[in-house]
Simulated assay, not measured.
Amino acid sequence: MEIKMAKNYGFCFGVKRAIQIAEKTKDSITLGPLIHNPKEISRLEMKFGVKVQEDTRAIKNGQNIIIRTHGIPKNDLEYLKNKEIQITDATCPYVTKPQQIVELMSKEGYQIIIFGDKAHPEVKGVMSYSQTEPIVIGSFEELKQTKIKKKVALVSQTTKQAQDLLEISSYLITHCYETRIFNTICNATFDNQESARELSKEVDIMIVVGGKTSSNTKQLLNIALQNCPKSYLVEDENDLIPEWFIDKNLCGITAGASTPDWIIDKVKKKILEIEESLKI
């Protein structure tokens, strides 16, 4: 069985930057997981003493705080700035952009529509910058059931699929008097998704490596499944099941933006070991 890697996969710019910040800021605290990959979070804690704290109000004076890549709500950031702590902002610039857009557009009287997952920390952060109550929609079908005004501004969670954003944008253009559309999907997300789409058309089995709570990783899995029904999401090599690879000739591998190379390498090595065992 041959293994083929996606053209683009793994760590994006924002995640690389956040990891480098965490490694340089030893014995620090992140508000929520720095990235959505529990294995990498564990590595940072064991090797660099970087701990996770979910409750902003539990932060004490004198601590070193890192803002996660997904950002945090505006009121939480303002609370931290009023304490005697060292703050290092690791919010991805691609996430900061929709925050700024939402703040500006809401001040100018636009109804804010966010295409994203309402429970996701990135979306919660973006929502907090709106001066008026924003609308969060998870799909085109959800938008059609929503009452919208004549003057709207649309942004997207950075990890959404471009074709879904296009469908939503087209609907708003034809149903609103004025529509401001901002493509806030991350370039790396788009490249990874397109690479996964291309590779999944070629292979017998597709392995997507990444955190199971990672939005962009789940998007990669959904894309792969459209072309390759034998597509699976694994967090590390321990999630691989040998039976998946029986009678398979070509295995594709891609990985989410929060997946480090050391995990991808272990997955690839394990697949090769499984292939050898199946020959016996």
Rank of each mutant, 00 (worst) to 15 (best):
M1H: 05
I3P: 04
Q20M: 07
A22C: 07
E23Y: 01
T25V: 11
D27S: 14
G32F: 05
H36S: 11
I41E: 01
R43N: 14
R43I: 05
G49M: 09
R57S: 14
A58D: 14
A58I: 04
A58R: 13
N61A: 12
R68G: 10
G71A: 02
I72N: 02
I87R: 03
I87C: 12
D89H: 13
V95T: 01
I101G: 08
I101T: 04
V102N: 12
I113W: 13
D117A: 11
G125M: 07
T132Q: 11
P134I: 03
I135N: 04
G138W: 04
T146W: 04
K147H: 06
I148N: 08
K151G: 02
K151R: 14
L154Y: 08
V155G: 13
Q157P: 08
D164R: 00
L165H: 08
C176D: 07
T179F: 07
I181A: 04
T189Q: 08
F190S: 07
K201D: 01
E202H: 10
D204T: 07
V209F: 01
G210R: 02
G211V: 01
L221N: 02
I223V: 14
L225Y: 02
P229F: 10
W244N: 04
D247K: 15
G252C: 05
T254I: 06
T254G: 03
A255P: 13
P260S: 07
D261A: 14
I264A: 11
K266S: 15
K268E: 15
E276P: 00
L278F: 07
I280P: 00
